[in-house]
Amino acid sequence: MTKRFRQDEDGAAMVEYSILIGIITAAVIAIIVAVGAWVTTQWTTLCGVLPGATCP
């Protein structure tokens, strides 16, 4: 029984995949936040440059 328990790597693989999914999720959220901030800045800049534009 102990040999089988030591050779079973399913639990370790699941933990590794869970950590990998967590890292990917955090990176995607950070990218979405960064792109959102960039778009907001660009939109504000464009709104300020256009004559007669009303900026919110």
Score class of each variant (00 low, 15 high):
residue 3 K to S: 08
residue 31 I to N: 08
residue 28 V to S: 06
residue 50 L to H: 04
residue 41 T to C: 01
residue 6 R to G: 09
residue 35 V to K: 11
residue 6 R to L: 07
residue 38 W to L: 07
residue 38 W to P: 03
residue 33 V to L: 11
residue 13 A to Q: 09
residue 25 T to Y: 10
residue 53 A to N: 03
residue 46 L to C: 12
residue 8 D to S: 13
residue 26 A to Q: 06
residue 11 G to A: 12
residue 16 E to Y: 08
residue 53 A to P: 02
residue 21 I to F: 00
residue 20 L to E: 13
residue 10 D to M: 10
residue 9 E to H: 14
residue 36 G to F: 00
residue 54 T to S: 13
residue 46 L to H: 12
residue 1 M to G: 13
residue 20 L to V: 15
residue 16 E to N: 12
residue 27 A to I: 10
residue 31 I to S: 08
residue 39 V to S: 03
residue 36 G to C: 05
residue 28 V to M: 02
residue 11 G to Q: 15
residue 56 P to H: 04
residue 16 E to H: 11
residue 22 G to T: 10
residue 8 D to N: 15
residue 41 T to A: 02
residue 31 I to T: 12
residue 32 I to Q: 15
residue 44 T to R: 13
residue 44 T to M: 13
residue 41 T to P: 00
residue 9 E to Y: 11
residue 30 A to T: 12
residue 1 M to N: 13
residue 43 W to T: 09
residue 49 V to N: 10
residue 15 V to P: 07
residue 46 L to R: 08
residue 49 V to I: 15
residue 19 I to V: 11
residue 29 I to T: 07
residue 34 A to N: 03
residue 4 R to G: 09
residue 36 G to L: 01
residue 47 C to R: 07
residue 2 T to D: 08
residue 24 I to C: 11
residue 21 I to A: 03
residue 38 W to R: 01
residue 52 G to A: 07
residue 37 A to Y: 11
residue 38 W to Q: 07
residue 39 V to C: 01
residue 12 A to Q: 15
residue 55 C to L: 06
residue 6 R to S: 15
residue 56 P to V: 11
residue 39 V to Y: 00
residue 30 A to P: 00
residue 51 P to V: 04
residue 37 A to S: 13
residue 22 G to S: 06
residue 15 V to Y: 08
residue 48 G to K: 05
residue 7 Q to A: 15
residue 40 T to W: 12
residue 7 Q to G: 15
residue 42 Q to K: 01
residue 26 A to Y: 02
residue 13 A to H: 05
residue 14 M to E: 04
residue 40 T to N: 12
residue 31 I to R: 08
residue 39 V to E: 00
residue 43 W to L: 10
residue 11 G to M: 08
residue 55 C to T: 13
residue 55 C to R: 05
residue 47 C to V: 03
residue 39 V to K: 00
residue 29 I to C: 08
residue 44 T to D: 06
residue 26 A to M: 02
residue 23 I to N: 08
residue 27 A to D: 04
residue 36 G to T: 06
residue 32 I to L: 12
residue 53 A to R: 11
residue 50 L to Q: 05
residue 45 T to F: 04
residue 51 P to I: 01
residue 23 I to P: 00
residue 30 A to H: 11
residue 38 W to H: 04
residue 21 I to G: 02
residue 19 I to K: 10
residue 24 I to A: 06
residue 31 I to F: 05
residue 45 T to D: 11
residue 23 I to G: 09
residue 27 A to R: 12
residue 56 P to A: 08
residue 3 K to Q: 11
residue 21 I to S: 02
residue 24 I to W: 05
residue 21 I to V: 05
residue 13 A to F: 04
residue 30 A to Y: 05
residue 18 S to L: 10
residue 31 I to C: 06
residue 32 I to S: 11
residue 39 V to W: 01
